[in-house]
Amino acid sequence: MAMPLIQIESVFVAYGNPPRAVLAGIDLEIEEGSFVCLLGQTGCGKSTLLRLVLGSERPLRGRILIDGREHHQPDSTRGYVPQRYALFPDRTVLDNITFGPEVSEFGLAGRLRPAFYRRRKELRDEAFHYLRRIGLRESDASKYPHQLSGGMQQRVAIAQALINRPRILLMDEAFSALDSGTRREMQSLVRELWKSTGTTLLFVTHNIDEALRLGTRVVVLAREAPELGSRIAMDLAVPDPCAQEDIPSLMDRLERVSCPAEAGGTVTLSV
């Protein structure tokens, strides 16, 4: 069997003084091309796990291998779409999208070379292609991020990450600040882009419905007791496409594992 793209090996993370465990012994393997949703309640450490994969944080114990290698800082193998501050406020939509290829191909002095301007023209054409693909009008290209709605901003952020063709795309509660209608649209957009690009997606969310609609696999993080770090409480393969009538029963199962403390109450209510 081929080696998994992301290997998380008995990772342990603690914060604060005295240290309080956040993640306690996480083992996870993610195959190339899968769409994994990390699900859990606020504060369960799912964003921490994402940051570990991103490389902006390091585990106290254990290690994370991407394509068999440890990475100690974020780089272009992993694209990133955060919940907020995803776009550079000082650049137009078009410049935001072309930023990735521009900085990876040209250094600080690269602007002085004529090749830069030739290449930028090509990149702009490509950016327009992405712009149409994410459903923005050409007239939006010269707008600044603050002139766009939240949903539009996240669309641009996705295009910005995808133009670099990262092998892995990490999305941290990317749609949590959006209203439900926009969120649905974004979900189908991401699903579509995932299928057409073949990128491995790791998507953090606290919304069970979202996780089921998006992922091919849902990994639930939960604490067994408040003083313990989170573990993987459930690792669920989601049928593709997830049938509408399966969602309530799956949701019920996920709800029970994601908040074990309240599980008793949930069960009695559902009976």
Binding site: L54, P74, D75, S76, A86, F99, V103, S104, N164
Partner: peptide, 9 residues
């Protein structure tokens, strides 16, 4: 972080 993931130094 975003800039780094886009290939910036």
């Amino acid at each position: 972080v975003k800039a780094f993931t886009l290939g910036a130094g």
